[in-house]
Design a protein around this nucleic acid. Sequence first.
DNA 1: CTATGTGAAGGCCTTCACAGCG
DNA 2: CGCTGTGAAGGCCTTCACATAG
Lengths: 208, 208
Amino acid sequence: MKKKVPQATVHRLSLYARYLGELEAQGEDYVSSERLGEGVGTNGAQVRKDLSFFDRFGIPGRGYPVSFLRKRLANILGVGDRVWRVAVVGAGRLGAALVGYSVFEKQSFHFVAILDNDPGKIGTRVNGLEVGDIRDLRGIVSSQNVEVAVITVPVHSAQQVADMLVEAGVRALLNFAPAKLDVSPHIVLRNVDLAVELEGLSFHLINS
Amino acid sequence: MKKKVPQATVHRLSLYARYLGELEAQGEDYVSSERLGEGVGTNGAQVRKDLSFFDRFGIPGRGYPVSFLRKRLANILGVGDRVWRVAVVGAGRLGAALVGYSVFEKQSFHFVAILDNDPGKIGTRVNGLEVGDIRDLRGIVSSQNVEVAVITVPVHSAQQVADMLVEAGVRALLNFAPAKLDVSPHIVLRNVDLAVELEGLSFHLINS
DNA sequence: CTATGTGAAGGCCTTCACAGCG
DNA sequence: CGCTGTGAAGGCCTTCACATAG
């Protein structure tokens, strides 16, 4: 319960929460920092340091109460009780895949809209959601209380879409377009860049 | 041209290469480290340090020759001349989306196979590729010279699929399943975990 | 006696600052 | 004189090691 939480710690928190869910399903009551670290690819010291940013969750000599810790981490991550309302912009293959991706709905992310600018797609259904017209973005964001948006449009329109979303009041963006988006610093922006990931693989294949 | 290249540097190298491509298309001949950094969201000092791991590419007083540097970075990343043959395992929505994702083919990643275990999918076509039977994985990997695989199967079969791929001779894995895969240390493994990304957004939304 | 919580140490990556090249 | 290349400094994150709690 101290200072600034490292980005890497936040990332691991998600992994801890997921692994704790598995342990919980297996009926485990307590888990040591060492085993929890093992389960997500790190070590006990790292686990203890990560958790120490928030609270004292453990019992010396025993370990961490699995179910309790999982719930606390879910709350810290903002996926405990509340649900985030998410819009997807770009109803191409990737956008459609994400809307149907069960991992998201199991967590507390609820897709409330999918938008596109292609008249051939508008009005069709994707996983039960009707594709809306991107020109209605502003109205949809406010009427549906969208707080998070996923951008899966082509790179040349990504910045424009980001601007529209921010203007409409969306506070967090998950961007799949291979573009550097410029947004106001109080907007939470995260990029998933598949080409960069593959090039990372490629680099390590060559240099080994 | 010194010591171990940081992971973060490899990541930025991809971004530099992409931005240089844009500059090249605009007909720019030279670019300063400062501008190149600006273009990918970092600064000139970082750019110079990153590049210094490999060679002296720049001309003091002038900057970096755009086209030359782009080509050299592409080669360093392993996407310059050669083509990587990629198989996708899991022909669900996400797998299908990735096979059709133009960003990959534009880079030097060529999808040569998509596999699934669902009889209802085997034999159908996804973006021109016929879905193969996962039981033929070993044969397909060797006959098609697959070096890189993308895993888009459900979490409960991800480890098994990874084992099969490694056993068959694949050297690099891009894993989209929310699972910690155990693979031999000489296999290049990279995880894209969409739930973790969303939880990262969620955390920062709550804590700000 | 076991396993947590945490200052301190260590290591890695980024930023600084400037010598030196063109 | 401008901008690169790079040692040195700084800052952030991980690992260590042990006092402490149960």
